[in-house]
Simulated scan of single mutants.
Amino acid sequence: MPAKKTAAAAVPGPAEGALREEQLITIAAHLFAQKGYEGTSLRDIAEQAGVTKAALYYWFPEKEALFQRVVAGRMAALVQMATEAVASAATPVEKIRAFLICSAEQIDHDRPGWISTSNTFWSNFDPEQRKAIVPERDRFERLLRQCVSDAVADGSFRDVDPALATRLLLSGLNQLPRWHKPGGPLTAVQVVEQYLDMLLAGLAAPRKD
Rank of each mutant, 00 (worst) to 15 (best):
Ile27Cys: 02
Lys4Val: 12
Leu173Ser: 07
Pro112Arg: 10
Lys5Asp: 11
Gly202Pro: 00
Phe121Thr: 03
Cys147Gln: 13
Ser103Ala: 15
Leu168Glu: 07
Ala28Glu: 03
Asp197Leu: 10
Thr120Glu: 05
Ala3Tyr: 05
Lys63Val: 09
Asp108Lys: 02
Phe157Glu: 06
Ser149Gln: 15
Ala7Cys: 00
Lys53Phe: 11
Lys63Ile: 05
Gln23Thr: 14
Asp108Asn: 02
Lys5Pro: 00
Val11Gly: 03
Pro206Glu: 11
Leu42Tyr: 07
Ser118Ile: 00
Asn124Met: 02
Lys4Phe: 09
Phe99Glu: 04
Ala77Ser: 14
Gln106Trp: 14
Ala151Val: 10
Gln175His: 12
Ala163Phe: 10
Glu141Asn: 02
Asp138Asn: 09
Pro12Asp: 10
Asp110Asn: 14
Lys181Ile: 13
Gln48Val: 09
Thr6Val: 05
Gly13Ile: 06
Tyr195Ala: 09
Asn174Ala: 03
Pro14Thr: 07
Ile27Met: 05
Arg43Gly: 10
Ser103Gly: 12
Arg97Met: 07
Gly172Glu: 04
Ser149Asn: 13
Ala54Pro: 01
Ala49Leu: 08
Asp44Ala: 15
Ala188Thr: 02
Pro135Ala: 00
Leu56Tyr: 04
Pro182Cys: 01
Ala9Thr: 09
Pro14Trp: 04
Ser156Asp: 13
Leu169Cys: 05
Ala54Gly: 14
Arg167Gln: 15
Val11Ile: 15
Ala104Asp: 01
Glu62Phe: 01
Ser149Arg: 15
Ala72His: 03
Ile45Gly: 08
Glu193Pro: 04
Leu170Phe: 06
Phe140Asp: 04
Gln175Ile: 10
Leu24Pro: 04
Leu186Ala: 08
Asp138Gly: 00
Ala7Arg: 12
Ile96Leu: 12
Ala204Trp: 03
Leu169Val: 05
Ala165Ile: 06
Gln34Tyr: 00
Gly183Phe: 05
Ile115Tyr: 00
Gly113Tyr: 07
Ala163Met: 09
Glu141Thr: 11
Lys4Trp: 06
Thr83Glu: 15
His109Ala: 15
Leu199Pro: 01
Ala49Pro: 09
Asn119His: 08
Pro12His: 11
Ser171Arg: 06
Gln80Phe: 07
His30Asn: 08
Gly36Asp: 03
Val134Leu: 13
Ala10Ser: 11
Ile115Leu: 12
Ser116Phe: 00
Arg139Met: 08
Glu62Ser: 13
Ile133Ala: 00
Ala28Thr: 13
Ser149Val: 10
Gly172Asn: 09
Lys208Arg: 15
Gly183His: 03
Arg69Asp: 07
Val51Arg: 01
Arg137Val: 03
Arg145Cys: 15
Gln175Thr: 14
Ala165Leu: 06
Ser123Asn: 08
Met1Val: 11
Leu24Val: 03
Arg20Met: 09
His109Leu: 12
Thr83Asn: 14
Ser149Glu: 15
Val93Phe: 14
Val192Tyr: 06
Ser149Leu: 14
Thr187Met: 02
Leu56Thr: 05
Ala153Asp: 15
Asp197Glu: 12
Asn124Trp: 00
Ala151Asn: 11
Ala82Pro: 02
Leu56His: 06
Glu141Gln: 08
Ser171Trp: 03
Ala55Leu: 02
Arg137Phe: 06
Ala85Asp: 13
Ala65Ile: 10
Lys5Ala: 14
Phe121Leu: 12
Met75Asn: 04
Arg178Phe: 10
Arg43Trp: 11
Leu196Asp: 06
Asp138Leu: 05
His30Tyr: 01
Asp108Ala: 03
Asp161Phe: 11
Pro92Phe: 13
Thr166Ala: 10
